[in-house]
Simulated scan of single mutants.
Amino acid sequence: MTTTLSQGTVTTWLERFCAEVIAAESHLNELDAATGDGEHGSNLAQGAAAVRALLKDREFGDVQDQLAAVAMAIVNSVGGASGALYGTFFLRLSDVGEGRSALDLAALTEGLRSALAGIRELGGSAPGDKTLLDAIHPAVTELESSATRPADLLTALDRAAAAAEHGRDATASMVARMGRGSYLGDRSRGHVDAGATSMAMLLRCLHVSAEEAGA
């Protein structure tokens, strides 16, 4: 049974997400064009290229060092809100990795809870505003519920990823209240949010990488 996410698995997670973002660049741009500037995929693809280069060229002392470096690579290479939000995600998550070569479920839950709080503070958004928060918020809620019911790491991550995907899909019925989409009013309804899509992708990549490591 897989009980921790090793530093090597964290690398696999990041590499998998980078590959999927680059492959989905056009799709993410298309989603974003419906309510935003149509650059979410291109911006994240730039960040993915920077993270790939970082992972190839550097060794890291612990998980905190690794994730903090990823955060800075994203902030320095991705423009607009996406860079700040994803940079905040990884920087806040990195805090639980200090002195650790692996993360267990409790640490991951704490780190993702902190990442969620950081995104809320930075963007001023709330669940239901049609943002990436609508994917990460239900995922963290699902992880927190694992403390009250038996769940191993893989099961908890699978449930969290599924909750994020459900949250992503739910954005289609929402009216955007943040960013450029907010100017569209009801016309923003009927479109899945690009940020929620990429966040759900990130969390599913986390589950798949953990599952692969435990196979």
Results as ranks from 00 to 15, higher is better:
96 V>P: 01
86 Y>N: 06
177 R>F: 08
125 S>T: 08
78 V>A: 12
136 I>P: 02
79 G>F: 09
163 A>K: 01
169 D>L: 12
130 K>S: 04
93 L>G: 01
145 S>V: 07
155 T>S: 13
164 A>G: 14
151 A>V: 07
168 R>P: 09
151 A>P: 01
87 G>Q: 04
84 A>M: 10
119 I>E: 03
121 E>Q: 15
140 V>G: 00
122 L>R: 15
70 V>L: 06
161 A>I: 10
111 G>K: 01
155 T>G: 07
71 A>D: 08
69 A>F: 06
64 Q>D: 09
112 L>Y: 03
131 T>V: 09
78 V>T: 10
123 G>K: 04
79 G>N: 13
175 V>Q: 10
126 A>V: 09
120 R>E: 15
153 L>P: 05
70 V>D: 05
124 G>T: 06
161 A>N: 12
159 R>N: 14
179 G>N: 09
72 M>S: 10
80 G>Y: 06
85 L>Q: 05
93 L>H: 01
147 A>Q: 13
128 G>H: 06
83 G>Y: 04
79 G>L: 13
158 D>V: 07
134 D>A: 08
167 G>Y: 00
168 R>M: 15
120 R>D: 13
138 P>W: 00
75 V>E: 15
170 A>D: 14
161 A>P: 14
120 R>H: 11
135 A>G: 03
151 A>F: 00
70 V>Q: 04
173 S>I: 07
139 A>K: 01
80 G>V: 07
171 T>C: 08
97 G>S: 13
166 H>R: 14
135 A>R: 00
157 L>I: 03
73 A>R: 03
79 G>R: 11
152 D>V: 03
100 R>Q: 14
